Measured scan of single mutants.
Amino acid sequence: MTYKLISNGKTLKGETTTEAVDAATAEKVFKQYANDNGVDGEWTYDDATKTFTVTE
């Protein structure tokens, strides 16, 4: 399945996607992506749209 990340960081804003077997796997990928880009904030997940959002 395709999962989307919306980043509302102070230094990184935008969207990216990943293919993953489940939401937990996608979350690990996205949290590593955010960490690699210096984004640390509040996370939410919408199962209906398969979208994670991180806001700093």
Rank of each mutant, 00 (worst) to 15 (best):
M1V: 14
M1Y: 15
M1Q: 14
M1R: 11
T2L: 13
T2M: 11
T2R: 08
T2S: 07
Y3T: 02
Y3K: 01
Y3A: 01
K4D: 03
K4W: 13
K4I: 13
L5E: 03
I6K: 07
S7F: 15
S7C: 15
S7V: 15
N8E: 08
N8V: 13
G9H: 11
G9K: 04
K10E: 08
K10V: 12
T11I: 13
T11G: 11
L12E: 07
L12K: 07
L12N: 07
L12D: 05
L12I: 11
K13W: 11
K13C: 15
K13G: 07
K13R: 14
K13E: 08
G14I: 15
E15A: 08
T17I: 10
T17S: 10
T17E: 09
T17V: 09
T17H: 09
T18V: 14
T18S: 04
T18I: 15
E19H: 13
E19A: 07
E19L: 14
A20H: 02
A20L: 02
V21H: 12
V21D: 10
V21F: 12
V21G: 09
V21I: 13
D22E: 04
D22T: 06
A23W: 13
A24F: 09
A24I: 10
A24N: 08
T25A: 13
T25I: 07
A26L: 01
E27I: 06
E27C: 14
K28G: 07
K28T: 08
K28E: 08
V29F: 15
F30C: 02
F30T: 00
K31M: 09
K31G: 02
Q32R: 09
Q32E: 10
Q32G: 06
Y33M: 08
Y33S: 02
A34Q: 02
A34I: 07
N35A: 15
N35Q: 15
N35S: 15
N35F: 15
D36Q: 10
D36N: 09
N37T: 05
N37G: 05
N37E: 06
N37K: 10
G38W: 04
G38Q: 07
G38I: 04
G38T: 04
G38R: 05
V39W: 14
V39E: 03
V39H: 04
V39T: 05
V39K: 02
D40H: 14
D40L: 13
D40W: 15
G41R: 01
E42K: 10
E42Y: 13
E42L: 13
W43M: 04
W43P: 00
W43G: 00
W43L: 04
T44H: 12
T44Q: 09
T44V: 08
Y45R: 01
Y45V: 00
Y45P: 00
D46Y: 04
D46Q: 04
D46G: 00
D46A: 03
D46T: 04
D47A: 13
D47G: 08
D47C: 08
D47K: 08
D47Q: 08
A48N: 11
T49G: 04
K50H: 12
K50R: 14
T51S: 04
T51F: 02
F52S: 00
F52A: 00
T53M: 09
T53L: 07
T53S: 07
V54L: 12
V54T: 02
V54E: 02
V54A: 01
V54R: 00
T55I: 11
T55M: 09
T55S: 09
T55E: 06
E56Y: 09
